[in-house]
Computed example of a mutant assay.
Amino acid sequence: MPAHVAAPYFETWTGESPAALAAESGNKYLTMAFLETDAAGSCTAYWNGDTTQPISKAAFGSDIAAIQARGGNVIPSFGGWTADTTGTELADSCTSVDAIASVYESLVTTYGITRIDLDVEGDSINNAAGIDRRNKAIAKVERWAERTGRSVQFSYTLPTSNTGLEANGVALLQNAVDNGARVDVVNIMTFDYWDGATHDMAADTQTAAAGLHDQLAALYPKKSSAKLWSMIGVTEMPGIDDYGPEETFTTQDAVTVENWAVAKGIDTLSFWALQRDNGGCPGTGGSDSCSGIAQDTWYFSHTFEPFMRGVSVS
């Protein structure tokens, strides 16, 4: 993966082609959401928990290959709100660390990807057994990658307050440290604060990331400040988020955040989700298919893309 990557989430359940939308929007990288089991207790992961979409080249293989042929890649993501609240997040569902690790490894060998994202929220972020299994599996996969000459990174996507992770998010990362699991990126979801306040979303992205930086400094005391910033990612929700108009990420907020991300040298800029990057439903909050604000189609994609090249926008 590049040192700075813009990789919006792609909703894999829509039936759309990730390669086609990546090309239309100008994105070289996508985070593909989500992988989960079809039922609690299973150790088999499917795209969207749909048993007709296993981890197989028959499911998204040609799309992923097309994205890679254009010099990009995808980041498969496990979890998400639905899986994390129904027991179908892989490490919550499966009690075998070896089986969890095998699923992660199968993504690398099947699709040629080099980063796996773990979206842990809802019930999953308080599931101590699942957290421990997941981190043990990460460590196991990292040892496998080292033995076999592969490159595999892991990112954790976690909910945040506007001052940093809650205690359960810090505990999850502490467990990773305790298990010898290398976490390459901590990607905070800087939206859906749900605290009743009206938010300046760009400013709160910056304070949330600053808080995370300090939390990472306590977890990784040997890392420099620059290295800690290079472990950070932020995921925005363009337009009106699930809470409502009090939490609206504007087009100008996107410019502010992109410039800040370049200056700080963070790792990842993302947003939820690519299919929302259009102005088709002004005034509608929390839609899966439009931002709820007036905007040009692909505005947020085009604004975040220069981050890949370390270029600020105006």
Rank of each mutant, 00 (worst) to 15 (best):
G87V: 09
T88G: 00
T88F: 06
E89S: 04
L90D: 01
L90W: 04
A91R: 02
D92H: 07
D92V: 12
S93F: 08
C94G: 07
T95C: 03
T95N: 14
T95V: 12
T95F: 11
V97I: 12
D98R: 10
D98V: 10
D98N: 14
A99L: 11
A99M: 07
V103M: 08
Y104V: 04
E105N: 06
E105H: 12
L107T: 03
L107I: 09
L107S: 01
V108E: 05
V108I: 13
V108Q: 03
T109E: 15
T109V: 12
T109F: 10
T109A: 13
T110A: 13
Y111M: 05
Y111I: 04
Y111R: 02
Y111C: 01
G112V: 06
I113W: 03
I113F: 09
T114H: 10
R115W: 09
R115T: 09
I116Q: 01
I116A: 00
L118I: 11
D119R: 00
G122E: 09
S124L: 04
S124H: 06
S124A: 15
S124R: 07
I125M: 08
I125L: 15
N126W: 06
N126S: 15
G130N: 06
G130C: 03
I131C: 00
I131V: 13
I131G: 01
D132P: 04
R133E: 08
R133T: 13
R133P: 10
R133G: 08
R133V: 11
N135G: 01
N135E: 05
K136W: 07
K136G: 00
A137I: 09
I138G: 02
I138W: 03
A139Q: 09
A139I: 08
K140I: 00
E142D: 11
E142A: 09
E142T: 13
E142L: 14
R143I: 03
R143K: 14
E146K: 11
R147P: 03
R147K: 15
G149M: 02
S151P: 02
S151R: 14
V152E: 03
F154V: 01
Y156G: 04
Y156E: 06
Y156K: 01
L158C: 08
L158D: 04
P159Y: 07
T160R: 05
T160F: 05
S161M: 09
S161V: 01
S161H: 08
G164H: 06
E166K: 12
E166Y: 12
A167T: 14
N168K: 08
N168P: 00
V170R: 12
A171E: 06
L172E: 02
L173G: 01
